[in-house]
Amino acid sequence: MTTTEAKLVKRPRIPTTYIVALIPVAAALNIVGSTINAALRLPTFLDMIGTAVVAMTLGPWWGALAGLITNIGIAIIRNPVSLPFALCNMVGALVWGYGIRWKMGKSFGRLLILSMFVGFFVSLTAVPIYVLVFGGATGHFGDMLTATFVAMGQRLWVSVFSSNILVSFTDKIISTFVALAILGALPKELTSHLELVEQKNLKTVIWITLGIVVGIAALLFIMFTNIAG
């Protein structure tokens, strides 16, 4: 317990028992998030929202723990093959957590940039796993995009990274703003120390995301066509 308590000194308002209870809830919500995602047939994953909430309220390392616990849970109840992706979940937590600490949540624009950073670093961790372990496949519709890039003559890891970053940006921008909406529904004592922008209309966020992702996709296509040609 000594290490746990040492870390806690920074946030004396939140009792250890509360943290020990909040982390499994966040981990379970990560898993239920992907069920909701499937039920509503969304093109995202929404499997890190619990992590985002913990990273923002309790800090980056508690968020990382929530991410780790999530993947251990998935390994036990579904399939142990997903265990390496614990790393992505933890990296996402660190970026969210430190980002919020470094005042990246203060305005809508900053939060948008922070969520793209999360997307970028999560992709950076995920792509080597996808390429080295899974031969470049993710098992989602994003694979069609990867195939398109490969057909355009790109190398596999470039193709996987390009399609993954598009998927990742979409997912992490939306997850960040969903997490923001959730923070609004949390007890005040959990969120009062945070400097956060007002909750944003999700419709606006989705349009902006669409703009960003389509823009990057167009850029990639132009780049790849020129390189190939």
Binding site: A39, R41, V178, I182, A185
Partner: peptide
């Protein structure tokens, strides 16, 4: 289905769990 259903579905799950 669709994004318009996202917050109405996900927030109660979280808030209840909290």
């Amino acid at each position: 289905s669709g994004f318009s259903a996202l917050l109405p579905s996900i927030i109660p799950v979280f808030a209840g769990a909290i």
